[in-house]
């Protein structure tokens, strides 16, 4: 729970002041010295990360490295115990999930969560960027343009034929696609994608990699958390390796794969 954040003992933490702050020229996402402590357990430990506009970034790391917690912090699900989390110049630590989403930060969950009781079409319609207050929702009429956008997304995620089906009866892979589709409908500036290809076939994985590359078209930034190194290689982007809540290494896939520290904690096993 976010409210449970507590003051922490400043043990085993390097002093923040002495370190050069990361440059933030074109930063869309800016994390600096972020720590999250649950009952003495450091899920994130002084993590700093910068994602530039239009950048595609892969984040890898062993289980428990803090990848999902990092996404939670950015999207407002978890409040950091300390540290700076900014979207452009906006402090994200003071906003709730909905406000952050409305700023233009979209998220796809590790375990696909779509709305089972609604149809595929309705799921996308909910995600479509539009005024979100109750009154507007009540008065909402589906315009031709909106219909076209939904149709385009349906085609993109290959679910056109299933538009009228309840999300509950989709397969796991289709749910993954639907969730990616919902992410696209939000038209966000930053997409946080947690393990998008889990449960997908090789062909689907390739398709997804291409899609993500296309999305990060210079305007949108995409952060992908993934286990599948082949997929990360296919993305062909900068890779950040997390370990025990802190950044271990950063660079191209070849660079991090040859980093002895990474080899030791992650790849070597």
């Amino acid at each position: 729970m976010s409210e449970s954040s507590q003051a922490v003992l400043p043990m085993e933490r390097p002093p923040v002041l002495g370190r050069p702050r990361p440059p933030r020229s074109d930063a869309v996402l800016y994390l600096d010295g972020v720590s999250v402590v649950f009952d003495g357990f450091r899920a994130l430990n002084n993590l700093s990360l910068i994602v530039e506009q239009g950048e595609l970034r892969a984040v890898i790391g062993p289980n428990g490295a803090g990848k999902t917690t990092m996404m939670d912090v950015i999207t407002g699900k978890t409040r950091p115990t300390e540290g700076v989390v900014q979207f452009r110049d906006i402090d994200l630590t003071r906003l709730d999930e909905a406000a952050i989403a409305n700023l233009g930060i979209g998220r796809k969950f590790q375990k696909p969560t779509v709305f089972d009781a609604l149809t595929v079409f309705e799921n996308l319609e909910l995600a479509l960027k539009a005024p979100r207050n109750p009154w507007a929702c009540l008065r909402w009429m589906l315009s031709g343009e909106a219909r076209d956008r939904i149709a385009a997304t349906l085609a993109e995620i290959g679910l056109t034929a299933r538009a009228g089906d309840r999300a509950a009866i989709l397969s796991h892979g289709q749910r993954q696609w639907l969730e990616i589709g919902m992410l696209l409908m939000q038209d966000p500036e930053v997409l946080l994608v947690d393990e998008p290809v889990a449960g997908m076939t090789d062909q689907e994985t390739e398709h997804t990699a291409a899609l993500l590359r296309r999305i990060a078209d210079g305007r949108r930034s995409v952060v992908v958390v993934e286990h599948d190194l082949e997929f990360v290689r296919a993305l062909g982007c900068k890779v950040t390796v997390l370990c025990e809540g802190a950044m271990l290494s950063e660079g191209s896939i070849d660079h991090v794969q040859n980093d002895p520290r990474v080899v030791e904690v992650y790849l070597g096993r």
Binding site: M1, E3, S4, Q6, F38, D39, F41
Partner: peptide
């Protein structure tokens, strides 16, 4: 102020 009561469980268990 304290949605989880006086003696709240913290951390992952509480999630």
């Amino acid at each position: 102020r304290r949605p989880r009561g006086l003696f709240a469980l913290k951390g992952r268990a509480a999630e």
